[in-house]
C-alpha cells in the first residue's frame, strides 16, 4: 500500500502554507511535538513525492514577457517522440498529452517578440511529426494557481 499523510503531516503542511520557511523548531513548538519528528515528517512528505516546498517565480518579473499556450497536432505514431522533444526545449515549461482536437498542449515563456517568432516559425516547424500548431499569446493573466500540479516524470 502507498504511504499516506496523516493528521500530523497535514498540520505541518498547514503551517508551511502560511510560512514555507518556518524552522522545524518553530513548527515543533507550535504542534507540541519534538523537532526530530517534524524533520522526519518533512522528509517523508517531500521525498515521498506528496508535496514540494519551493519558491514559485513570477516569469514576467524574471524577464519572460510572453506566455504562449500552444495546441499541437501530431502524427499518431510520433506522439511520444514529439512530447519528449518539446520537453527538452528550454522555453517550454509544460508539456501535456491530451485528448481532444489537439494532441499536445504546451506552455512556453519567451523573453522577446523575436524569441517568440523564432520559437513559432523555426523551432516548432523543425520538429518532425508535428502536423499543425494553434499558437496564442496570453495577454492578460487573471489567475495562475500552482498549489496542485502534476509532478511530471516522477512517482
Amino acid at each position: 500500500m502507498k504511504p499516506s499523510l496523516d493528521d500530523l503531516d497535514h498540520k505541518i503542511l498547514q503551517i508551511l502554507e502560511e510560512d514555507g520557511r518556518a524552522p522545524a523548531k518553530f513548527i515543533a513548538e507550535k504542534l507540541s511535538v519534538n523537532e526530530v519528528t517534524v524533520s522526519k515528517r518533512l522528509t517523508k512528505i517531500i521525498e515521498g513525492g506528496f508535496c514540494k516546498i519551493i519558491a514559485i517565480a513570477d516569469f514576467e518579473k524574471c524577464g519572460y514577457e510572453y506566455l504562449l499556450p500552444i495546441g499541437i497536432r501530431v502524427q499518431g505514431d510520433k506522439l511520444e517522440e514529439v512530447a519528449e522533444i518539446l520537453s527538452q526545449q528550454k522555453e517550454v515549461f509544460s508539456v501535456n498529452v491530451v485528448s481532444g482536437i489537439q494532441d499536445i498542449e504546451i506552455l512556453c515563456a519567451t523573453q522577446s517578440l523575436s524569441e517568440t517568432k523564432i520559437f513559432l516559425d523555426e523551432t516548432l516547424p523543425s520538429i518532425v511529426g508535428i502536423k499543425s500548431i494553434a499558437p496564442a499569446i496570453a495577454s492578460n493573466v487573471y489567475k495562475f494557481e500552482t498549489d496542485w500540479t502534476p509532478f511530471a516524470n516522477e512517482a
Partner: peptide, 17 residues
C-alpha cells in the same frame, strides 16, 4: 482537451497575482 499524460510540468513558473 483532457490531460492524459504529463511530460513536463514546471510548477516553479507562474504569475504571482
Amino acid at each position: 482537451s483532457i490531460g492524459l499524460k504529463y511530460y513536463k510540468y514546471d510548477y516553479r513558473w507562474a504569475r504571482i497575482l
